[in-house]
Design a protein around this nucleic acid. Structure first.
Length: 347
DNA sequence: CCGTATGATTTCCT
DNA sequence: AGGAAATCATACGG
């Protein structure tokens, strides 16, 4: 501030201005450079300095007088210029920083996860990508899948409403400060550039809030995602009916338990599971059966009976279309010696 | 709580 | 790419 006061006091010795067009800052500068006396400015400054020593009423009156003074705009423009050259220019250098890399990172992630960006499409695409990354087929539409999407939509909604609130608050505050500064610029020298800078400062402060919002949204998505992936990894036993269908196929194709793609699809549909789950099941079953045939003997016999009974029922129904027999009613009638013992495996 | 069953994943092979 | 084998991680029953 020392420089500024020195510059200001330096002005006092320049003498008064007689030209009427003092509203133009350029003319002021011209006159200064020409070394013309500017007594008026000196007077005004004296008066300003003296204001603090005066009573409130006097000060108010003088302030008003100063406000109306024909020299005021010129003086303010000079003061603003000085301010620009001193304090503000020092700060101004590091102000023009590029967009925060962390915010950019968060933005990219939110976009990739489908939280920000276009509406529905992004979300489902991200979910599909997550599913694909987890090894599932993208065509699988499981319950977890829709669950994930629903949760993501929820996060999305919260994020957008919060962001909207934030933007509203930010612009409200900015407007408020801008109005305040504009108001104040009548009584103290404030350049438009300074207001601009203040707005930038406010925005920077608000962007840290925005970052917090984005960060916590990202965290929420990550948690949801890990839970989603965990859910896929978490094992849920297939229901009885599904294992029954799979076992039936396995033991009735024991000589070649390798269902074709079509057969897998059919089984998947019947069991309410995915094709890859069918593949997993057959992979597991084959290896475990082969490892310990003895352990599966009982099960094998059971399903051999089952298929035999079913076959019998089918043929019975075919020959007697109006037979009242239920599919399982024949089990008790099967004689033990009819149980087909297992064929060996050749695979 | 422990042992076994079982669905999923990983690694290697063809 | 699809399968075998090993392994992981959880479910489930006693």
């Amino acid at each position: 501030m020392d420089d500024q006061t020195r510059m200001l006091t330096g002005l006092t010795g320049l003498g008064g201005l007689s030209q009427p067009d003092v509203g133009d800052p350029d003319s002021v500068r011209k006159q200064q450079s020409l070394g013309q006396p500017q007594q008026d400015i000196g007077d005004i400054l004296q008066q300003i300095m003296a204001i603090t020593d005066e009573s409130l009423d006097e000060a108010q009156a003088r302030k008003h007088a100063l406000n109306c003074h024909r020299m005021k705009p010129a003086l303010f423009s000079v003061l603003c210029e000085i301010k620009e050259k001193t304090v503000l220019s020092i700060r101004g250098v590091q102000e023009e920083d590029p967009p925060d890399p962390q915010i950019m990172r968060l933005d990219n992630m939110l976009l990739a996860e489908g939280v920000s960006g276009p509406e529905k499409g992004g979300g489902s695409a991200a979910a599909a990508a997550a599913a694909a990354a987890a090894g599932g087929s993208p065509t699988d539409s499981s319950i977890e899948h829709s669950d994930y999407r629903a949760k993501l939509a929820q996060i999305r909604q919260i994020y957008h409403s919060e962001l909207e609130k934030y933007e509203q608050a930010c612009s409200e505050f900015t407007n408020h400060v801008m109005n305040l500064l504009r108001e104040q610029s009548r009584t103290r020298p404030i350049s438009p550039k300074e207001i601009e800078r203040m707005v930038a400062i406010i925005h920077r402060k608000f962007s840290s809030i925005q970052m917090q919002l984005k960060q916590s949204t990202c965290e929420a998505v990550m948690i949801l995602r890990s839970r989603f992936l965990d859910a896929r990894r978490k094992r849920r036993n297939f229901n009885k009916q599904a294992t029954e269908v799979l076992n039936e196929y396995f033991y009735s194709h024991l000589s070649n338990p390798y269902p074709s793609e079509e057969a897998k699809e059919e089984l998947a549909k019947k069991c309410g599971i995915t094709v890859s789950q069918v593949s997993n099941w057959f992979g597991n079953k084959r290896i475990r059966y082969k490892k310990n045939i003895g352990k599966f003997q009982e099960e094998a016999n059971l399903y051999a009976v089952k298929t035999a009974v079913d076959a019998a029922n089918v043929s019975a129904q075919a020959s007697q279309a109006n037979s009242p027999a239920t599919p399982n009613s024949g089990i008790g009638t099967i004689r033990p010696h009819l149980i087909v013992l297992l064929p060996g495996f050749y695979w």
